[in-house]
C-alpha cells in the first residue's frame, strides 16, 4: 500500500472522507426523521417532537388496511421468489454447462430485462397484461415482477454452477440418475448457498420493486411499497405520522430481509450483477 505523504495529499484524503461522512449523516438523518415522526404526538418547530406515542401504528394498521396489503405483498413476493427459482436455476444450469450456437444471443436476451429500466418496459407490458385481463389481479403483478427477476437468478447462478465439478454430475449419471434425479439429489444440495443468496436478493428486490407493481396492480393486489406511494402522494388526507408509521413498517420488512441476505452475499452483489 502506498502512503499519502504530501500535505495536499492528506487534505485530499480528508476531503474525500468528509464527503462520505456528510452523505451518510444526511442519509441516516433522513431515515431517522421518518422513525421519530412515526412515534411523535406533535412535531413542528423543535428539534424533537413534543411527546411520544405509539398510537399511529394502530391507526395506520386500520386506515391503510395493512393486513390486506401485507397479505398481498407476501403472496406476490412468495410466488415471485418460487417461480423465478424454478425458471431460473435450470436455465442457469444449461447456460453454465452447454455451448451452443446462439448462446450469446440468449445471454443478451437475459441481460436486456435487467438493463432496461422497469418504467420503460413496464408501460407496454402493462398494456399487454390489461389486454389479457391479468393486470389488476395478483397474477398480473407476479408475472410483471418476474420479468427482471428470472434473468437476475440466471445471471447470479451461472458462476455458482460453474464452480461445481462436472465429474460429480457424470458420476451421478453413471449410477443411473436422470436429469430430474440429478437435480434433486446432487445439484440442489450442492447449490443451496447460491440458490439461497439469489432468492433472498430477489425477495429484497421484489418487496422494493415499485414501478412494475404500480403499473400492474389493482386495488386488491397492491403491495406495501405501492400503498406507501399512494399514502405519500395523498399526504394531507391523513396525518403525516400515520404515513410515517406505515413507512417504518415497510422499512422493517425490507431491512430485515436485507440483513438476512447480507449474511450470504456481499453488498456489492446487489448492484453488480454476476460476473460475465
Amino acid at each position: 500500500m502506498i502512503r499519502t505523504q504530501t500535505p495536499l495529499g492528506r487534505l485530499w484524503v480528508w476531503a474525500v472522507w468528509l464527503l462520505v461522512g456528510f452523505f451518510i449523516v444526511n442519509l441516516l438523518g433522513l431515515i431517522a426523521t421518518v422513525v421519530v415522526n412515526s412515534f411523535s404526538t406533535r412535531w413542528f418547530t423543535t428539534w424533537l417532537p413534543v411527546g411520544f406515542t405509539t398510537r399511529w401504528y394502530l391507526s395506520a394498521w386500520e386506515e391503510f388496511q395493512l393486513p390486506d396489503i401485507l397479505m398481498a405483498t407476501f403472496e406476490v413476493v412468495g410466488a415471485v421468489v418460487l417461480l423465478s427459482g424454478l425458471l431460473g436455476v435450470p436455465a442457469a444450469y444449461a447456460m453454465a454447462r452447454r455451448d451452443f450456437p446462439g448462446k450469446r444471443f440468449v445471454m443478451l436476451l437475459f441481460l436486456l430485462p435487467m438493463l432496461v429500466p422497469p418504467i420503460t418496459f413496464g408501460i407496454p407490458l402493462a398494456t399487454v397484461l390489461y389486454q389479457a385481463g391479468l393486470a389488476g389481479e395478483v397474477w398480473g403483478v407476479i408475472l410483471a415482477n418476474l420479468v427482471p427477476t428470472v434473468p437476475f437468478v440466471i445471471l447470479v447462478m451461472i458462476p455458482f454452477i460453474q464452480q461445481i465439478d462436472p465429474r460429480v454430475e457424470q458420476a451421478a449419471r453413471v449410477f443411473g440418475a436422470g436429469t430430474l434425479r440429478m437435480f434433486t439429489n446432487v445439484l440442489v444440495p450442492l447449490l443451496l448457498p447460491g440458490i439461497l443468496a439469489a432468492l433472498l436478493l430477489v425477495l429484497v428486490r421484489t418487496i422494493a420493486m415499485f414501478e412494475l407493481t404500480f403499473l400492474t396492480a389493482g386495488p386488491t393486489s397492491q403491495t406495501l411499497v405501492v400503498a406507501l406511494y399512494y399514502a405519500v402522494f395523498a399526504a394531507g388526507v391523513r396525518a403525516g405520522q400515520s404515513v410515517d408509521a406505515m413507512a417504518v413498517i415497510y422499512m422493517i420488512t425490507t431491512l430485515a430481509w436485507l440483513l438476512l441476505a447480507l449474511r450470504f452475499v456481499n453488498p456489492t452483489q446487489i448492484v453488480t450483477r454476476a460476473k460475465r
Binding site: I24, L30, A208, G240, A247, M251
Partner: peptide, 23 residues
C-alpha cells in the same frame, strides 16, 4: 460502509422520498 450504502438502494425511491419530505 458498503452495507450502509446499500440501504437507500434497498429501501427504494418511495421511502427515500418520504424521508426527504421530512428531512
Amino acid at each position: 460502509l458498503t452495507t450502509i450504502l446499500v440501504i437507500p438502494i434497498t429501501l427504494g425511491t418511495v421511502l427515500v422520498a418520504e424521508g426527504m419530505l421530512n428531512y
